[in-house]
Amino acid sequence: MRLSVKHLLGIKDLTKEDIELIFQTADNFKAVLSRPIKKVPTLRDTTIVNLFYENSTRTRISFELAEKRLGADTINFATSSSSVSKGEGLIDTVNNILSMKVDMVVMRHSASGAPHFLANHIQVPIINAGDGTNEHPTQALLDAYSIREKCQTLKGKKVAIIGDIMHSRVALSNIFCLQKLGAEVLVVGPPTLIPKHIESLGVQVTYDVREALQWCDVANVLRIQLERQNKPLFSSLREYALFYGVNKKLLDSLQKEIIIMHPGPINRGVEIDSDVADGPHSIILNQVENGVAIRMAVLYLLAGKTSAE
């Protein structure tokens, strides 16, 4: 059995069976990660470059750790300290790296579609670690995996994605992933942060966070991405927190248990309050923990393909 794709560019291209295969493989890697020796030699003859054209803490460390736990050699690349600041283009940079016999590319880029473009020009497997406002597939996989771990299945589960839907690649990947696994999705946020025609993806839309929380089993709270907002889309962070922030008082008033998720980094006091983020129903740190196992699974399943061709 193999994945139906050569690259992981987005959840959009995956089948339900692909996602289930990734989860099943991640289960085994999670077991490896709980052993005294958290490492296997599977990818010991594979070299992977982490190309990060945009800042990242979690995703980057998680990928690097996943690669190391699989025994792969890793190279890290950050735009600020590289020849990109001298004006080198994407394909040139990648081709130069690949000529040093690198077997896989993990890439984050601020332009949507950058990994898709690269996939047309290079032969090795590419894993998208976030491209602009398009997709962040491994985040969606680890989110869905974390819900599955908590609730056994995603089928019929109601998931609300709260906040900056417009600029969020996490939102789009999550919508695709959750729907493929049979969950219902609702998006909520200020009208200026909800993309037009998002209903065409088959999600429900509301502008009232209380209504959304009343409906859902799981709330995935997203970060306000100020760095991607070229013009003001809401008056102030304070106002946003007041109308859309998830706080304890709001949750307590609903008298039901909701699983709280956040892809990080958290703006405490803006989209989510500390007592919610650190509360008993929060699985935010489980998400981070599962991220390593999910990324190991994706790397393992895609790496196996290189030499087969």
Binding site: M1, V32, P41, L43, A303
Partner: peptide, 14 residues
């Protein structure tokens, strides 16, 4: 995860 034919086998082992 300990096989020695990961990069030579055509089959991916689950």
């Amino acid at each position: 995860f300990y096989r020695d034919d990961f990069n030579t086998s055509n089959e991916l082992h689950i």
